[in-house]
Amino acid sequence: MMTFIWVSLLIVILSMLGVLYRIFRGPSTPDRLIALDVIGVMFISATALVSILFHTAFFFEVILLLAVLSFIGTVSFSKFIEKGEIIERDRNR
């Protein structure tokens, strides 16, 4: 069982490295951001697997947090790319 988890973890990490290539490669910024988003998500998977391995529930917060942050990151990056400013003063104007 644990071996399986180990292997899974390895696969996830290798996947992350694979996606990392896209970050370096690009070619456009949105490409990188997408890759980043994917990495964030995979990060969550990795953390989940790690907490199985370590028999600890302390990283659940981390998982939830990563989900939250990855979302916020994605939103702000995409707004930045789209509009150049991420927080508008008054969008109805």
Binding site: F58, E61, V62, L65, V68, L69, F71, I72, V75, S76, K79, I86, I87, E88, R89, D90, R91, N92
Partner: peptide
């Protein structure tokens, strides 16, 4: 357990930032 005032506060900030992102300051 892990957590506390800092993380809690920062996370609330993050929530508000999300609001700001989705809506606007006003």
């Amino acid at each position: 357990a892990p957590g506390g005032g800092f993380v809690g506060g920062l996370l609330t900030t993050a929530a508000i930032v999300l609001l700001l992102l989705a809506f606007d300051l006003k």
